[in-house]
Design a protein around this nucleic acid. Sequence first.
DNA 1: ACGTGATCCTGGAAGC
DNA 2: TGCTTCCAGGATCACG
Length: 269
Amino acid sequence: MPELPEVEVSRQGIAPYLTGQTINKIELRQPKLRWPIPAQVQLAVGEPVLAVRRRAKYLLIDTAPGSLIIHLGMSGALRVLPCEQAYLKHDHVIIELESGQSLRLNDPRRFGALLWQAPGDTLSVFAKLGPEPLTDAFDGERLYQLSRSRKSPVKTFIMDNAVVVGVGNIYATEALFAVGIDPRRAAGRISKARYRELAEAIKHTLGRAIVQGGTSLKDFTQADGKPGYFKQSLLAYGRAGESCVRCATPLQSVQLGQRTSVYCPGCQR
DNA sequence: ACGTGATCCTGGAAGC
DNA sequence: TGCTTCCAGGATCACG
């Protein structure tokens, strides 16, 4: 999926088409995504979109009676296309707008979700999320404090949504490479100074990826169908066996918390 | 509280 | 060419 940069790029891409537009129709072509789609999503029909927001990897499409909550799972992508355009395979949700454009959620693996949140309500998926990585609420101090008794690998630690949201496998791999920290290192055995550097690297990596339109591997496209260009900037993710750009040591691959992690045994300590 | 592993699902790539 | 196996941007849940 889309990690935080891809979700933010999607938000920026779709917001101009949605904001202020009335929703004419919501068509559900596949009711079973990660969770069954609640019937209340139809409450948004006939309502103008007030705002398109993001929290962690969730998109929130606000209307007066409540918010449509979209998660893109591992393989989801949002496209804006004219209503009359033929459906593609795996176009599971189509939100038609009065403008004649439609927002389509395409998700081959169906790990994504469409949920509904009434005003004043907080869905359980939002209940125990950590801070947004691009805000001041996230810093090295927080990483240091939360990690003191943790034995799990630092990579697993920074991918924990209770610690900080939005850091997935690609950007965790890249940020650790950038600061030269071995992803296998126990989270509790890293100094405050190094955590300050890591927090800055996470912010920097995510920020650059957003500017470049995110990372497109297979499924992800921006709202206009174009891929993101950050893939060209990846120095570790997907490069096992290749030479490290810093020290030429062959990059290694290891499984941490069920996820493949690539690192340089030469300069990540 | 923390850590680990199974699980949801489809499709592309690699191996034989 | 075709079949099988493995792997993939996530995150919950059950269990020890």
